[in-house]
């Protein structure tokens, strides 16, 4: 079962992109493959220790990503990119975490005047670590570890012109660095802003879901290191089921803000191979609220390209007809 060149001579992802929940590995050309593996990241138990970030870097020998003090709460990593495949977001909010009492009180100063746009304020413009509008005395500190979603319908993979990105037997999406020519197409294609180009070598890099570890039966490095099991790794079916139960128990417990993100196999990317339990809207964590695999619209795009081309031909013919007169 050679993983390379699986895209030659077929159009798996074009049709795949239109079909909702599918078996991505099979579409990638794998027969007799293991179950689809993925992550369920339960951010409600994340303690923001960043062990996942560091473990990922250690295991994959990713270069250091810049020494920048950002002022974004405890996040100095800023986001996913070529040299950050796990990123822990920190969000300070004037919102209650269920009925937790945070003990803090800020009546002396209108902090929201210091950060007028709430958490959407960039640190340069903020007088304080940006905080979502809310009541004084409410505070919760959300932490969430983000990663490549290993989309069922992966735009990065679809648009890759070299076949460098491929679908593994585990249904995950991986870059083959020896094939990538740095065209950069996958980068804006990803609706989540995951994959990126490494400046000094020109290639695109992202989470491999530790393909090398999976193939020898090991758990990914980030999940292995997560002390609170915020990152759970396993067959996607099981994870989806577990996440449902977890959501129910949180709701029962009064954590009504809890929601699942990327679990629905009928969403715009056909469901994420790495999905999340969040405590607020996705955009609060820097995630798109309703992502769509861009190639979903590709057939329509091609149709319009065809029409436009025809229009051009028509215009040219007309120009020669009319050209005699003007």
């Amino acid at each position: 079962m050679a993983p390379v060149d699986v895209t030659i001579g077929r159009r798996p992802d074009l049709t795949g992109a239109l079909l909702g929940d599918t078996d991505p590995a099979a579409q990638g050309g794998w027969t007799d493959h293991p179950p689809r593996m993925g992550f369920f990241t339960d951010t409600s138990v994340c303690i923001g220790c960043k062990a996942c970030e560091v473990a990922c870097k250690e295991w994959n020998a990713i270069p250091e990503d810049g020494l920048v003090f950002t002022g974004m709460s405890m996040d100095n990593t800023q986001g996913l990119g070529a040299d950050t495949w796990r990123h822990v977001a920190f969000v300070e909010q004037r919102k209650p975490l269920a009925v937790q009492d945070p003990g803090v009180l800020h009546e002396g100063v209108d902090v929201l005047a210091l950060a007028p746009q709430g958490s959407g304020t960039s640190p340069d413009e903020a007088g304080t670590t940006p905080t979502t509008p809310g009541d004084p005395g409410d505070l919760r500190w959300l932490m969430a570890s983000d990663v490549c979603k290993h989309c069922t319908h992966a735009a990065c993979l679809d648009v890759c012109p070299t076949g460098s990105l491929f679908r593994t037997e585990f249904g995950t999406v991986v870059v083959q660095e020896d094939i990538c020519n740095g065209c950069g197409y996958c980068i804006p294609a990803c609706p989540y802003g995951v994959i990126d180009q490494r400046k000094d070598d020109g290639r695109a890099w992202k989470c491999t879901l530790c393909y090398d570890r999976l193939t020898v039966g090991q758990e990914p490095a980030c999940a292995k290191n997560c002390p609170t099991d915020s990152i759970q790794f396993g067959p996607l079916d099981e994870l989806r089921e577990r996440a449902g139960a977890r959501l129910a128990s949180l709701h029962d417990g009064g954590v009504t803000d809890a929601r699942l993100y990327g679990r629905d196999p009928h969403d715009g990317v056909g469901g994420d191979g790495a999905f999340f339990l969040l405590l607020d809207e996705p955009e609060v964590y820097g995630l798109p609220p309703d992502p769509v695999v861009t190639t979903r619209d590709l057939p329509a795009m091609w149709r319009r390209v065809g029409a436009a081309a025809a229009t051009l031909v028509g215009a040219a013919v007309a120009a020669f007809v009319a050209g005699r007169r003007i």
Binding site: K50, E53, V54, K57, E58, P63, E64, D65, G66, L67, V68, F69, T70, G71, M74, N76, T77, H106, G108, V109, V111, L114, P123, D124, A126, G127, T128, T129
Partner: peptide, 27 residues
């Protein structure tokens, strides 16, 4: 490097009230 980049500079934590009282600028 992997740890240095997570918290690259010495910093202090202060409340918005103190920041205002002393004119301290975020970041």
């Amino acid at each position: 490097p992997y740890l240095a980049e997570l918290a690259p500079e010495m910093f202090c934590e202060v409340s918005p009230e103190l920041a205002r009282e002393r004119g301290l600028e975020h970041a």
